[in-house]
Amino acid sequence: MQFNIERVLDLDKWERLQEKIAIATHLAIILVDYRGKPLTRHSQVKPFCNLARQHPLLSQFCEKCDARGGLEAVRTGKPFIYRCHFNIIDLAIPIMVDNNYVGAIMAGEILLSEQEELEQILNLDHHPDVQAFRIEHQELIKEYPKFSLADLNNTASMLEQLSEYIVTEAIKKDYLITAYKQTLRLNKRTETINASTDNAPIDLTLLQEDIRQSVLEKRLGEFDGIYQAKNKLLQPAVDAVFANKGRHIDLQTLAQLVHLSPSYLSRLLKEEFGVPFSQIYSELKIYWAEKLLLETDMTIGEISDELGYIEPSYFIRSFKKNKGSTPLKWRQQNQN
């Protein structure tokens, strides 16, 4: 299924940014889909190209150049600078999602002193309409800004990094919102969300926290309570935590198990879980407590001892802080 970049990218905001970039760089810029079809208005389009893109036949050649330029950029894995069918310099910056080409930023409409060294992506030098149009509007071509190839390469690199960041962040935001809606049924906060949520502003920080907690519980259930670390270096430390539910294991002990410094292990664990290890460790204790509350007849004091809490009162405070109710009340509510 072809990814639809319009679904995640706010084209109105993009166009405003695109216009400012075009003014600052003196390049004409347009966003196209994977077929070369325009998704935005053309920013700072030059008069000659503007006339060509309004021509019923020549506009098709322009779109074909855009499409071929984008595909060539995908093939080379970097911005592709080329000559169009009018020998005007353009460049294509591919937009990739999961290694799939979904569109490109097309920029250019300039001249280079060494432009004959560049590939002409679509040769129509002998096409009568192209020749006639070029001759008729020759004076407009002379007005194009002139760049050095080095300056154009630097500008292309800047646009590549900027577009990658913007598109990646847009996709991440769309994923978070979609994933949040899909995981609401797992989330303990569902009861506080009403029907107006879909139209209300969404706090991405809260979404990330809700998703992280839901995914953690889902993965624990799938693996029968044994968490499978994405970073394999961490698996011995994770296994040690699960194998010693009844005692407190500090970061120093875990670091010795995996032969890493405590500070480096702490960073890796935060990357793994999205929060400091102390927080995830506390959440794990509560997760195990929930299972014991539902699946056994153990008393609150026995569960506290089983999970290595210093005393039942501390266990009760920790549980209430995390779940919003005492362990006994939570057991009564959930067993019913």
Score class of each variant (00 low, 15 high):
residue 1 M to K: 07
residue 2 Q to R: 13
residue 4 N to C: 01
residue 13 K to S: 12
residue 14 W to H: 08
residue 21 I to L: 15
residue 21 I to G: 03
residue 26 H to P: 00
residue 27 L to C: 09
residue 30 I to K: 07
residue 46 K to W: 08
residue 49 C to D: 04
residue 53 R to P: 00
residue 55 H to M: 14
residue 59 S to R: 15
residue 71 L to Q: 13
residue 76 T to E: 12
residue 86 F to Q: 03
residue 94 P to E: 07
residue 100 N to W: 01
residue 105 I to A: 05
residue 110 I to P: 01
residue 111 L to R: 13
residue 117 E to F: 01
residue 119 E to I: 06
residue 121 I to W: 04
residue 124 L to P: 00
residue 125 D to V: 01
residue 128 P to Y: 08
residue 131 Q to S: 01
residue 133 F to G: 06
residue 134 R to M: 12
residue 142 K to D: 09
residue 143 E to D: 12
residue 145 P to W: 07
residue 146 K to W: 00
residue 151 D to N: 14
residue 153 N to D: 05
residue 154 N to D: 11
residue 158 M to Y: 15
residue 161 Q to C: 00
residue 166 I to R: 11
residue 167 V to I: 15
residue 168 T to D: 05
residue 175 Y to T: 11
residue 180 Y to A: 12
residue 183 T to S: 10
residue 184 L to H: 06
residue 195 A to N: 13
residue 205 T to C: 03
residue 210 D to Y: 10
residue 211 I to P: 00
residue 213 Q to G: 03
residue 218 K to A: 14
residue 223 F to P: 00
residue 225 G to A: 04
residue 232 K to S: 09
residue 233 L to K: 12
residue 236 P to T: 04
residue 241 V to A: 05
residue 253 T to D: 15
residue 258 V to K: 10
residue 263 S to D: 08
residue 263 S to V: 07
residue 281 Y to C: 03
residue 284 L to P: 00
residue 292 L to C: 08
residue 299 T to D: 08
residue 308 G to S: 11
residue 313 S to W: 09
residue 314 Y to A: 09
residue 325 S to E: 15
residue 327 P to N: 09
residue 332 Q to V: 13
residue 333 Q to I: 12
